[in-house]
Nucleic acid binder design. Structure first.
Lengths: 128, 128
DNA sequence: TGGATATATGAACAACTCTTCAGATGGGAA
DNA sequence: TTCCCATCTGAAGAGTTGTTCATATATCCA
């Protein structure tokens, strides 16, 4: 398993080899990127944050997050497909809960920081 | 500041109010979602993972991550604009480093888990 | 049974994202 | 100066994503 792949020139060949070897498998990276992608939509994020405290039904999630119930349902479907949330049905209601402890940790970590730090807004204060 | 906003019906009005009050500000949520969005692309993720160990120049980043130098440059520009990475110039080379400790923590946490858990692939094993 | 309610789904469309290609910038060497 | 090389940039196009609207399913109540 030699290093080359792309025929680009390299400055520090040893570092390149070393870093390459430490790089997680493509599949793992793709999965991780996927998770981040699921957290990258403000409305989906709102849903998950709402679920941090415990289960809620679809209409309450819509009320809490200010989205249409259809939008909420679509979002939950996606999250459910990735086993990030799970549904408990009771009559015609569906109660969703945050199922994935890994995602919960990411949310906790992310929220802990946004509350204390000021984010950078490249559009406004032009970071060239 | 009363609770209603969307004229949707609500099942557990008290929970809805409580969760709403704990909900971070829209701006904070948007910033957090933005960060997750930056981590949601496999190639950008590769770049950041490569930078976990220390700075690298653009061409080495291209070699490590298997992307064109142009693609790398575009990606770094985005990350730079959000102050997630920073550039040190030396002659015609540009050495990038991971600047944001918050993002570093998210990466560490995320990678720690993907290496040990099996992700869900909804397309393959149909979670209806 | 029929009607109301909660949730789920499909299709369609606008908005956004990523890559690529071509060319620009700017430092270093001759 | 002139050429070369590393990096940067803009524009364009394919692909993806999120929302909406309309409709479907399924449960409850009368």
């Amino acid at each position: 398993m030699t290093v080359d792949g792309c025929a680009v020139k390299v400055v520090d060949a040893d570092r390149v080899t070393a870093v390459r070897e430490r790089m997680p498998a493509a599949e793992d990276l793709a999965d991780t990127a996927d998770i981040f992608g699921l957290l990258s939509d403000p409305n989906r994020l709102r849903l998950l944050v709402a679920l941090l405290d415990g289960e809620l039904c679809v209409c309450d999630l819509a009320a809490v997050t200010g989205q249409s119930e259809s939008a909420v349902s679509h979002a939950l479907r996606l999250l459910r497909a990735h086993r990030i949330v799970s549904a408990r049905r009771s009559g015609r209601m569906a109660y969703y809960r945050l199922e994935d402890p890994h995602v919960r940790m990411l949310l906790d970590l992310a929220l802990a920081h946004t509350e204390h730090t000021e984010a950078i807004h490249p559009e406004r204060d032009g970071a060239s």
